[in-house]
Design a protein around this nucleic acid. Structure first.
Length: 698
DNA sequence: GACACTTTTAT
DNA sequence: TAAAAGTGT
């Protein structure tokens, strides 16, 4: 592949070669966009966006997410026009062939794009790269989404970290800084796209227009707006970020997450600007400001970590990373699920959160934790359903971040939360919303209830309820499950889980389950069909008129079809055996590489100089994976399994980790999934390193 | 500075 | 819950 890199460098240098297609995805900005810069450097540019949502399978973007995307694309197009070109949009069922078509019809010979790390993109991009390279196209890809590429951050043995804290610590102490942000191009030489006309993309149907119109009042997509939001945050709420972190409303946060998801703002720019501010505050002896920056950067770090996790464990959006959880007896209850979605659980903080989510597509991080923890531990619904609902409703829906969040809540990360501790929404209510303002804003039916009872109306005296106009069970529900009952039920469920886990283990040792066969796999509980949104007849209105709650109740509450709840052990798309049309690859295997110290040679990309080699000879490989050196960076390329089934893919490594808490009682079960997929070298060093988990679940 | 005590926070 | 970080003696 070295010759390829050399060719690319040559093309970049002589500025010719028939022009470049710059393929935009979730990097909808002209500033600090390495793929765009590469295109500009090499000559004529064709900027392209391909809309192929069917390729996303279950993860077809939700309504609000599509709305954001449409706005952001419009914004990008206008920026590109002011620079001398425009955005070519294409509707497609198959991105690779559409891109090939674009390349052919424009006569371009280069394809440049920026990396994505979700499991679908990893596989698709790899295939695409192979396909187009075979067609003689010069394909190059770049890091535009992360401070450091996942494969750059390793422990002293060269193995990936399995917990967040040391990962982030390493990121903050890397021997080289994240690349400095690139300036936007001054001008773009547009290629002649007359033979490659844009197609009109439709992102919303008529029924969605009303609700979407309302979103525009609260949000301004687009990279310039993202930039403004960043400046506003840094000069405003950032200073008090640490102090305000307990507040449930959004005014104190950065509100950057949807901008970041669509790549409207570069994390590297965020990082650099925030660090500069931190230095200023540090010089002034402003401890609070310094602390706030650390805390804010940590949330940036979690975003980085979500990509890291997805890269190292590409199943993390659908499978628990710790093996034992596959035996948890989830409660398959559509009524619970619906009550949660509608914000009618009887716990005001949870309900307020769910109504805010539905009405606005956004939730404070704290409240996300509250509602998802309630979902998993009190209702004991399968976490993937909750994650899917978030996917459908969040403006900043992000597969990697959401998978990290839900796995953390579910306790299936080595450093996740204890599964056996239930958070009490009443106590959390008084913690995050001490005066009940948040609850009153989103639950108008409770607006007149005094603060003393606002987070536990079921205990309020009848006279108080009457005075507040509340009739429990009628205009506001009684608790759907009592916390004490939930605790008892959770204990039972966990006992059952450990029992099944132990049984499976014993069976395996006896060789009963030959070759770690199918029965060792977690039964994947499928989504209750894809959650169907009922048609919104009217825009959401949140106000304090008496009819407001009623409207909330019948509008747009997503519903699901009962008959489609499936509990059988259907293999979803993780199965790559014979599922050609939906073959999301799951497994990077045999990643074998020897990263050299990245000397910064004045270039903007880290990752120059890496020496890579392909490890082709590993017989345990289920899918081919190789590392390709390309100009300006290292690109991991994966392809899905062709040969064996997926049984092996999910076998936990024999290495137990963790200590403390319930895991100490079941130490043998606490194993990380997926390590098998790493190269023998990596796995071996992992085994050596495994004992040290200072912050294990306790 | 050493200690007991309380408060905070957890990816 | 339990470890860390504050607070007061």
């Amino acid at each position: 592949m070295a010759s390829c890199a050399a060719a690319a460098a040559a093309a970049a240098a002589d500025g010719g070669g028939g022009g470049s297609v710059v393929w935009f995805r979730r990097d909808l900005r002209v500033e600090d966009n390495p793929a765009l810069s590469a295109g500009v450097r090499s000559g004529e540019v064709f900027a392209v966006f391909v809309w192929a949502p069917e390729e996303e399978g279950h993860y077809y973007p939700g309504r609000v997410s599509r709305w954001w995307l449409s706005q952001s694309l419009r914004h990008l197009d206008s920026s590109l026009r002011s620079l001398g070109t425009s955005l070519i949009t294409k509707r497609s069922l198959d991105t690779a062939s559409t891109l090939l078509h674009v390349l052919r019809s424009t006569g371009a010979s280069n394809l440049f794009f920026n990396h994505l790390y979700d499991p679908l993109s990893l596989v698709r991009d790899h295939r695409l790269k192979e396909l187009l390279t075979a067609q003689g196209i010069n394909v190059r890809s770049f890091n535009a989404d992360l401070l450091y590429e996942p494969w750059e951050v390793n422990d002293e043995n060269g193995s990936p970290f399995a917990t967040f804290a040391p990962f982030w610590n390493k990121c903050l102490n890397m021997p080289y800084d994240p690349a400095s942000p690139l300036l936007p191009p001054k001008r773009i030489i547009s290629g002649d796209a007359s033979r490659c006309p844009s197609e009109t993309l439709v992102f919303e149907d008529d029924s969605e227009k009303g609700s979407n119109a309302l979103l525009a009042r609260a949000w301004s997509p687009g990279w310039r707006n993202a930039d403004k939001a960043l400046s506003a945050f840094i000069s405003g709420p950032l200073l008090e970020y640490s102090v305000n972190r307990k507040k449930a409303d959004g005014a104190t946060t950065s509100l950057l997450s949807p901008h970041l998801h669509f790549g409207e703002v570069s994390v590297r720019k965020v990082f650099h600007l925030v660090r500069i501010k931190q230095l200023v505050w540090a010089n002034e002896g402003n401890k609070a400001g310094e602390e706030s920056v650390n805390l804010f950067l940590k949330s940036i770090g979690l975003r980085e970590y979500s990509r890291y996790l997805s890269f190292n464990h590409p199943c993390s959006h659908e499978r628990p990373l710790l093996a034992h959880l596959r035996f948890f007896p989830w409660i398959i209850d559509e009524t619970y699920f619906k009550a949660w979605r509608q914000g009618r659980t009887g716990y005001p903080l949870v309900d307020a959160g769910m109504r805010e989510l539905w009405a606005t597509g956004w939730l404070h991080d704290r409240i996300r934790v509250v509602v998802s923890s309630f979902f998993v531990k009190v209702l004991q619904l399968p976490w993937r359903w909750g994650m899917k609902y978030f996917w459908d409703t969040l403006l900043d829906a992000d597969l990697e971040s959401d998978a990290l969040g839900w796995q953390y809540i579910t306790g299936t990360l080595p450093d996740g939360r204890d599964f056996d501790r239930i958070d009490n929404p009443q106590l959390e209510g008084y913690k995050f919303d001490p005066y009940g303002e948040y609850v009153r804003r989103w639950l108008p039916e409770l607006a007149r209830l005094p603060t003393e009872w606002i987070h536990h109306p079921w205990e309020a005296p009848e006279t108080v309820l009457q005075a507040a106009g509340i009739e429990l069970g009628s205009n506001y529900p009684l608790p759907i499950v009592e916390i004490s009952a939930a605790k008892a039920r959770l204990q039972e469920a966990l006992a059952e889980m450990w029992h099944l886990d132990a049984a499976s283990r014993a069976a395996m040792e006896n060789g009963t389950e030959e070759g770690l066969g199918d029965s060792s796999e977690e039964p994947l509980i499928n989504f209750p069909q894809d959650i169907q949104m009922e048609v919104d007849r009217e825009p959401v209105r949140i106000n304090n008129t008496p009819s407001a709650d009623r409207r909330l109740e019948d509008q747009m509450v997503p519903s699901m079809t009962a008959s489609l709840v499936r509990v059988e052990q259907t293999v979803v798309s993780a199965d790559t055996r014979n599922n050609a049309e939906d073959s999301r690859g799951e497994v990077p295997t045999t990643v074998d590489f020897s990263p050299h110290q990245q000397g910064d040679q004045g270039g903007t990309q880290a990752g120059r100089n890496n020496v890579l080699r392909q490890n082709a000879g590993d017989s345990t490989a289920e899918s081919s994976s190789s590392w390709t050196e390309r100009d300006g960076g290292v690109v991991p390329v994966w392809s899905p399994s062709v040969s064996s089934g997926r049984a092996e893919q999910f076998v936990a490594d024999e290495t137990g980790i963790g200590s403390g808490g319930y895991l100490q009682r079941h130490p043998q079960s606490h194993q990380l999934m997926n390590w098998r997929q790493l190269s023998p070298t990596v796995t071996r060093s992992w085994e050596v390193e495994n004992a040290v988990q200072p912050n294990a679940i306790g």
